[in-house]
Computed example of a mutant assay.
Amino acid sequence: MKLTKTLIALALAGAAFSAQAHKPWLLPSSSLVDHKDPWVTVDAAISEGLFDIDHVPLKLDGITITGPDGAKVDMQNAMTGRLRSTFDVKLAKPGTYRIALVNQSVMASWKVNGEVKRWRGAEAEMAANVPAKADELTVSRTASRLETFVSSNKTDEAVFKPTGVGLELVPVTHPNDMRAGEEAKWKFLLDGKPAANQAFSLIPGGVKYRGTLGEIRFNTDAKGEVSFTIPEAGMYLVSSSWPAAVAPQPGQPRQMPARRVTYAATVEVLPQ
């Protein structure tokens, strides 16, 4: 039950494309650890019910952990089972850690003697697999980011330095310092620039116990900023994509844009 990097990238794109689709997620046991010997355990899976272990595991190769000093941190006790993967992270230094899975993939279709050919893979492999001058060649590129944040004994901002690629969250209110009923402020960037009027949603876990999705939707302003309040504590999945999805015309297949960018993150909202 292994997923290729391409399938993972497609799943990441789907997470922001439809609130009802199978969603990949990283779920830390806690987002803020106050302990002399701080550790956190992270579950990683793709599921139909948010944070439910009901479909397939998320492969752990490709996941990077960045410490508060910018250094890479190794995962410990990594294991992939039939329905989920899991690993531990030792939070040796105080501050905030980023746990992320970032993918860039290409989908191409073309015709050979009237027959449609398709290919999916990494950008570096495209030249060897897709004819540059193929008939009716269409190419769609996807950049996806899936992440979560955990802090050891204190929070800081170092891991939020933008890379300038894709959709990124640059929080004003730290995601490990959010409380129910209190206003929070975030900023989204698209390729390093303010993501103006960018739609995003927060979906709380525990959907199967509520019977409703409980999705809360927001939009950024012209500066890519947004202020919002979450009424209840819990683990939430942040989900956003660009450009906005367009419903297909009746009887026509959904058209993929030349480039699609998605973002998803797990954040914890603490009680007030």
Rank of each mutant, 00 (worst) to 15 (best):
T142L: 11
K154G: 11
G181H: 03
K223R: 12
G234T: 00
A199F: 01
A15C: 12
Q252P: 01
A92E: 11
A265K: 03
D74H: 06
D61A: 10
V150I: 08
A19Q: 14
S85V: 08
Y97E: 09
A44M: 09
T262W: 01
L27W: 08
N77T: 02
T163A: 11
T266A: 13
E232S: 10
G62P: 07
T41I: 09
I8C: 07
Q76R: 14
T220G: 06
P171R: 02
V165S: 09
D191P: 04
L50D: 02
V139L: 15
S152I: 05
S18T: 13
I8M: 12
P175E: 04
T229D: 06
Q104P: 05
P194H: 03
S109R: 15
I65N: 03
W25T: 00
K193N: 03
I46Y: 10
P194R: 01
N176P: 04
H174C: 02
L10E: 14
V112E: 15
V269Q: 06
G211F: 05
H22F: 12
A19V: 15
E183I: 02
M126K: 15
E183R: 13
P204Q: 05
M126C: 07
G211S: 05
D88T: 04
E157I: 12
L137I: 12
E115S: 12
W25N: 07
V130M: 07
I53L: 13
A45R: 05
S152F: 06
S109N: 14
S140G: 12
G62S: 06
S151V: 01
T212M: 10
M107D: 05
S227E: 12
D52S: 13
K154C: 11
A245R: 15
A122K: 13
N103Q: 15
Q272F: 03
V112I: 15
D74T: 07
A16Y: 00
G67F: 09
V170S: 07
R84E: 14
V267P: 02
L83N: 12
P257T: 03
K23I: 08
T220D: 00
G164S: 07
W119Q: 09
L10A: 13
A71F: 05
V261W: 00
V56P: 01
